[in-house]
């Protein structure tokens, strides 16, 4: 290992690196590869058969579309919240800023039962929609609500620092050249926020695709209608269908890895653009 290291007077590289790699392998790398090795024993045909049954396909459709809608809602409102927090002064701003991270801090099971309570037809918010014939809890809409909750901080926290560092002089220049406020926003401010917005969207989407705890209480969990893929993995485990559960888990891991790669590329792009300015 010390072959890789460039000269340094500081000690402890071998010990720290050795422990890091050992711990990483034991906790993360070996267990994760176990999943793929177990899936490989199914063979390509067996894997394909498990992940293309109608019930699994319905769960993919729900999981990905709800995650997409949730991340989309969070992109719009995340930008709005970041803008309001950076640009305006109002009473309670500090508290609002702190509470944006609540979805990171509140255990998902607690979020799940409270969202289910609020958005049921008798709940604080659900009763406002019930007369319109809109049921939120125990329908796919409930899944969207839970996934919106869980992804809320991501866009706010990626856009906020970019907005804070944005040079006001650019806006003043645009205004003095005759641009309206809306033109300035769309043509001067928005283009610099673009990478951060996309990164936040991807982070929220990645988190939402795998989410379990906050969803199962509000979803209703009806097969083919409101059953998300992580729940289906648990169902298969409870039926001792280990091969099926593993195949589904592998398909989700592949999606996670692709998303992780995309997020890393987006962040690199954002930083790269940033240094040019």
């Amino acid at each position: 290992m010390s072959v890789l290291r460039k000269n340094s007077v500081l000690p402890g590289f071998n010990l720290a690196m050795g422990f890091t790699l050992l711990y990483l392998s034991l906790i993360v790398l070996i267990p994760l590869s176990a999943t793929f090795i177990k899936t490989a024993s199914l063979g390509w045909g067996g894997f394909w058969q498990v992940i293309t049954t109608p019930r699994v396909l319905a769960s993919y459709k729900l999981t990905f579309s709800a995650a997409l809608i949730g991340a989309g809602i969070n992109t719009v409102f995340g930008l709005l919240i970041a803008w309001v927090l950076v640009r305006y002064e109002f009473f309670g701003k500090k508290v609002i800023d702190a509470i944006v991270d609540l979805p990171f801090a509140l255990p998902t099971a607690v979020a799940g039962i409270s969202l289910a309570t609020i958005y049921s037809t008798k709940g604080w918010v659900g009763q406002l929609f019930a007369p319109l014939g809109v049921k939120i809890a125990y329908t796919p809409l409930g899944v969207v609500v839970a996934l919106t909750f869980i992804g809320l901080p991501f866009v706010v926290r990626t856009v906020q620092p970019v907005l804070e560092e944005f040079e006001v002089e650019l806006e003043e220049a645009a205004a003095s050249l005759g641009a309206t406020r809306l033109q300035t926003f769309l043509k001067v401010i928005f283009p610099t926020l673009w990478p951060a917005l996309l990164t936040g969207f991807a982070l929220a989407f990645a988190r939402a695709v795998g989410e379990y705890g906050s969803v199962i209480f509000i979803a209703g969990n009806i097969p083919m209608v409101s059953e998300i893929t992580p729940l289906l993995i648990i169902t298969k485990l409870e039926q001792y269908d280990y091969a099926g559960a593993t195949a589904l888990a592998s398909s989700m891991l592949i999606v996670s890895f692709i998303l992780l790669l995309a997020i890393n590329l987006l962040q690199w792009w954002g930083q790269h653009r940033h240094t040019k300015h």
Partner: peptide, 21 residues
């Protein structure tokens, strides 16, 4: 990136990998 990996794995899968071990 490898250290960050657990954040992008679904919680359910995080439990499942230990069941498989």
């Amino acid at each position: 990136t490898l250290i960050d990996l657990p954040f992008s794995v679904s919680p359910v899968v995080s439990g499942l990998i230990y069941v498989l071990m």
